[in-house]
Write a protein that binds this DNA or RNA. Structure first.
Lengths: 355, 355
DNA sequence: CTGAAAGCGCTTACAG
DNA sequence: CTGAAAGCGCTTACAG
């Protein structure tokens, strides 16, 4: 369709040398191959004049690599993944690479297709936040020689290098904070994609800590797809039935945003009627009223580590502990949304006042 | 480096036919070229067994297109551009294309490099939110045959197809709303990248409407790079000097977020001490207290139009009005942050009360 | 110092 | 119905 205007050969003919010389000059190997300064200058000048644009497809085909890496996440418009993408993009740029970003919408079939697509495009490697149920397929790709690193989400004993955060501990810290503060009727809002390691571990950590205190927790699964509507309906029903938890843990930022939205619409006060905590810190959480208690992830560290591991694979360098799981620490930012307020019109409040 | 395991030739040899037959079969042209059903099946089976992955580099080199388009924005982690990216990604996927996303950080040099890079990679076309001062360079690319459409930001008489929103009207509507509400000391927070058409037109519209009312406006330029710090310092100084505007227009969402943050830190009440309005609606603007008055952009429409125009260029189809500027409408969402509150301890309040 | 040649993996007229 | 060949644009031994 679109025709490459000027090729190596055009320059070569125009200057009166062979393609080889031009290629060498263009790749800065003139000196190394002892090409005369005069020739070098002439080639360079001609290339500029003709507005030469080296065809990276041909180069990639010949060389076997493309200086392109793939990034697959569930949704690039989610703040968390957008930040990840930006970090990866910058890291890639620092080594002269580009990033192809794709969203899966938590759809396994789509993820499969995207991986295939990226491989066919000869990306040098893939950084993946996978929606798969297990690591089986991914392990095949990996052992098949595809440079691959898993981020955010991982699988047990996958054997594929993975960089994640301590989700269990995050959930646990939240529960401990809530319990210590005095809350007693916890709920957790999780996603229908509950096989995902992040979601699963967050919930497990949360449950674990509450169980230590002998408290039962109320678990509700929100279908990925219509988070906002489902959360709104849930809270409305519970609120009307006077069956509300006194504290809530939303397992990701979308869920937390939906909760804030619904509470605003329904007139549910945070934290007076119900405390809110969540995973993934968003800039606005710190300055809205009430500010929102959230676990923040070391996004930059995740990306740096993942990228480094990927580069090692691409360069086929042996690296100790490759194939290992790297678990980074999280930080719990305690804010106003989980401040304990003594209930004024409930049984508990009477009990507390009696003391 | 990484070697393509199995090629067309491997399958051909393995089945005992020529590469041509395999290629035809793989591209679903078996029937068209009258290849026997038996051969077709055998080729397909073999390809599956050998886990054949067609090399898109070679294909692209031969065919002259890559089913890849480039998207260049200033910062992919900005919610607005993240949403744009997601829309474009989905549109591209619907025609079997991929998107390479790049961020420029408002750096002209970086933008230049990225365009060059994407062209060298033989992307089929580029969707660009440009940071350039003028359209000169871009016009060269465009007339050189590069399928290109500008979004979000445009240039006067560039001759390059552009899809933008009515930024002037957005600024104007905000000013009119503020004026009608009773505000009298307006300020606008703009960016150091004030040559950018979006920023420029928003400010112009805002100024225009205020000038109609005979009101002078206070303009402050915030350096791109340390928005949060600069906004904080500005507001702190003004607040201490008791030299605050009574209403503020932040020209984009980052600026608005920085204002909310600073006001929270400094104890400036919105809208009592100062009203806030801005461009770009963010989900959280609607449910925080106070909710934030914002102009929202038709992101989906922008992307649909831009993508369509790009596809026409790629397919080299004539299209009426190509090279034209498409200006989409915006919507002003009036919320609590710009509610007029009669000042209680200022000169104005006395005047108002005297009436 | 420089040129001719092979080959990366694909598609598509062309010839049978 | 199918095969041989050319060519997309590049890089890199190899030979001089």
């Amino acid at each position: 369709m679109k025709k490459q205007r000027v090729s190596l050969d055009d320059i070569a003919r125009s200057v009166g040398v062979s393609k080889a010389v031009v290629s060498l000059v263009m790749n800065g190997k003139a000196e190394q191959y002892g090409i005369s300064e005069r020739t070098r200058i002439r080639v360079l000048d001609r290339a500029r004049d003709l507005n030469y644009k080296p065809n990276q497809l041909a180069r990639g085909l010949r060389l076997g690599y493309t200086n392109t890496i793939g990034l697959i996440v569930s949704d690039i418009s989610n703040s968390f993944y957008a930040a990840i993408a930006r970090n990866i993009e910058d890291l890639a740029a620092s080594v002269g690479s580009n990033v192809i970003i794709c969203s899966t919408d938590e759809d396994i079939e789509k993820e499969r297709k995207l991986i295939k697509l990226l491989r066919n495009r000869q990306v040098d490697g893939i950084i993946l936040s996978s929606s798969q149920e297990n690591a089986e397929e991914l392990r095949n790709y990996y052992s098949d020689g595809l440079p691959l690193v898993l981020i955010d989400r991982c699988f047990e004993n996958s054997g594929i290098p993975s960089v994640v955060v301590d989700n269990f501990n995050g959930g646990k810290q939240i529960a401990e904070h809530l319990s210590k503060s005095g809350f007693q009727k916890p709920m957790v809002l999780t996603l229908s994609t509950s096989h995902i390691s992040t979601v699963k571990h967050r919930v497990e950590g949360y449950k674990y800590a509450w169980q230590q205190k002998g408290v039962k927790i109320d678990t509700v699964e929100i279908p990925f797809g219509d988070i906002s509507g489902a959360v709104s309906e849930l809270l409305m029903t519970r609120f009307k039935q006077n069956f509300m938890p006194d504290c809530l843990f939303a397992v990701n930022n979308n869920l937390a945003t939906a909760v804030l939205q619904s509470c605003n619409n329904l007139g549910i006060r945070i934290p007076e009627d119900m405390a809110l905590t969540c995973f993934d810190d968003l800039p606005y959480f710190s300055f809205i009223k009430p500010s929102v208690t959230a676990v923040s992830q070391p996004i930059s560290d995740i990306c740096t580590q993942a990228f480094e591991i990927l580069m090692h694979q691409i360069k086929q360098e042996e690296i100790e502990g490759l194939g290992k799981l790297s678990v980074l620490s999280i930080v719990l930012n305690i804010r106003d949304s989980s401040r304990f307020v003594i209930p004024s019109d409930s049984e508990e409040s009477k009990i507390l006042k009696d003391k």
